[in-house]
Design a binder for these strands. Sequence first.
DNA 1: TTGTATGCGTTATCAT
DNA 2: ATGATAACGCATACAA
Lengths: 361, 361
Amino acid sequence: MVEDAAAAVSSDERRRGRSPGGPVTLSQVAREAGVSLATASRAINGSANRTVRADLRERVLAAAERLRYSPDANAQAMARGRTTSLGLILHDIADPYFSSIAAGVGLAAERADLALTLASTQHDPTREPRFVDVLTRQRARAIIVAGGRRDDDETNDAMRTALANFRHSGGSVALIGQPLLDVDTVVIANHSGAAALARALHAHGYRRFGVLGGPTDHLTARDRLTGFREALEELGCPLAEEAVASCAFTRDGGYDGMTRLLRDGPPVDVVFAVNDVMAVGAMAAARDLGVRVPRDVGVAGFDDIVTLRDITPALTTVRVPLVDVGIAATELALAAPATEPRLVHVEGTVVLRESTPPRRP
Amino acid sequence: MVEDAAAAVSSDERRRGRSPGGPVTLSQVAREAGVSLATASRAINGSANRTVRADLRERVLAAAERLRYSPDANAQAMARGRTTSLGLILHDIADPYFSSIAAGVGLAAERADLALTLASTQHDPTREPRFVDVLTRQRARAIIVAGGRRDDDETNDAMRTALANFRHSGGSVALIGQPLLDVDTVVIANHSGAAALARALHAHGYRRFGVLGGPTDHLTARDRLTGFREALEELGCPLAEEAVASCAFTRDGGYDGMTRLLRDGPPVDVVFAVNDVMAVGAMAAARDLGVRVPRDVGVAGFDDIVTLRDITPALTTVRVPLVDVGIAATELALAAPATEPRLVHVEGTVVLRESTPPRRP
DNA sequence: TTGTATGCGTTATCAT
DNA sequence: ATGATAACGCATACAA
């Protein structure tokens, strides 16, 4: 008898990947409490119609406590047909732009009782669809895609396919950026924000503009550049083509672009970098070339990332409420599915700071 | 017949939470390929002993492709008895210290083919054990805890219990910080790093030291303060108690502490903030009080967070390879379990920059 | 209100 | 090498 019991236990435990005597199952709790599996289940999750007698309920809860029962989320996911996880895809979590968005998504995810699965592409767009596949396998409830899209049909098609697959498997999707992929999107008003910035700078007396335009196929960068350029044209102060430097969408890209612009470009009063980290890099480049900001040249960015707070001189920018954008995207993804892709528009606010003081032309 | 089939399908699909016709199952793939479920499983995961005839294998793969089959990770987790997810608990993902660590953990997780689940406590220590419970339910393979511990028995006990529970359920744990909780830990040499910094500053001619010490119950802060103080004592230049300001472990804490220190404290040559974000806040406070850095007072920090790169004046600090710390912690957690808690020691490197130029006493 | 039985999608055991 | 089938832990339709 003793041997049999031991053998039975060992064969019972054999296939478990986790340590012996590990996870306590609901059946064990039920047995301990002297009720059926179903009753234990009902007592513990206390679902909609909580139809368990008080004393039984107590017994079950006590047994669960005693045995340190921890429900297996994977098993629940199978039985319920839905998981409790939310995916977030971005380029680089160490970039303050994305980490603020991630903070917002994390907040909203916690409110919705969802666990946040984070996927960092390290700026490699080909990894995006791969991460979507991973999240599809996990059967995540929703995916938030925060990386700016590029004008690259191949990558976008791969992404479209992967996302279609995900949605076909029952998940929902929200994008942050451009309404490109036929899904719910939080649209950031890049064009109008940059235009407003151009007008504000013009009003401050700036006339000779330079732009660090980011990669030419980067849609966000392109929108910001276009908005800036068109506003300047309307002001009768067109932007010279040589005054636009293409560069990477990163801090180092800004540094390089600014270096080229100051060395080879036309003289400028002020330089607009299409995002803040580039602007910060640009200021470093100016310093290294002995060009003083803002005395010799003004600098402006876009996004108002939190780390800007301690940059000197304080940087003029277009504030985007990044945490709120993350929250909005999450809520969008978690809302009841709509027939049409929904768009939530987020405006930017021009914030003028020391890096672009008023100047007489 | 037709009606029966339709009825069967609808009852089949009824309980699925996901959209109709959604997730394709392996059985469907097997049927499509004309093989058994077992064969399909073997063909697709191609496990250790891949014993499937080539042509059958092809048929299965083709069928899977055609049907857009996506394996259900939850079901796999159940069957295999182990999941493919890794948990990371930290205070605030928008803090560059943590986001760098997260980047490292993410890298290591991807190498190990694990999905990263991120939990942000928003500086509320009571949320830590709750997140551990969430990850326990998910049956995560391992948890990395990156938030610095505090000297608070209640919180630490709750955490210890939650982690014990998690490990009992088969997961492994790695800590970053102090070897406090009897688990594998990446130990950062706070004491010796701060001591080395003190000696370097002393060698630069500084004699009147101030410290922004962080919260008194914060172990990392305390270790750094102690290391700094002891080194100064050995140098025959003891730290006055009034020259130490307690404050929050954040940028704003540094700002407040510096304000108090400059206003009410003894005169100082140089101020050591126990972390970089505090040091950055301290520089802002100095600016706002009209105290020039480094001319009137030097400032030094700890960690060498990446955003320091664009702070002026460049900040002296103790560099900690944060990304590597994240990687090391992940590898530690994923390594074969040891009988004893393992410790990986990481040294800091003093980096002297403009904020603390040499000065004659 | 409680219990019984089935299914969720997959892996692994054991025959064949 | 392949196939039938029993787990895995839980939720729930259905019966009692």
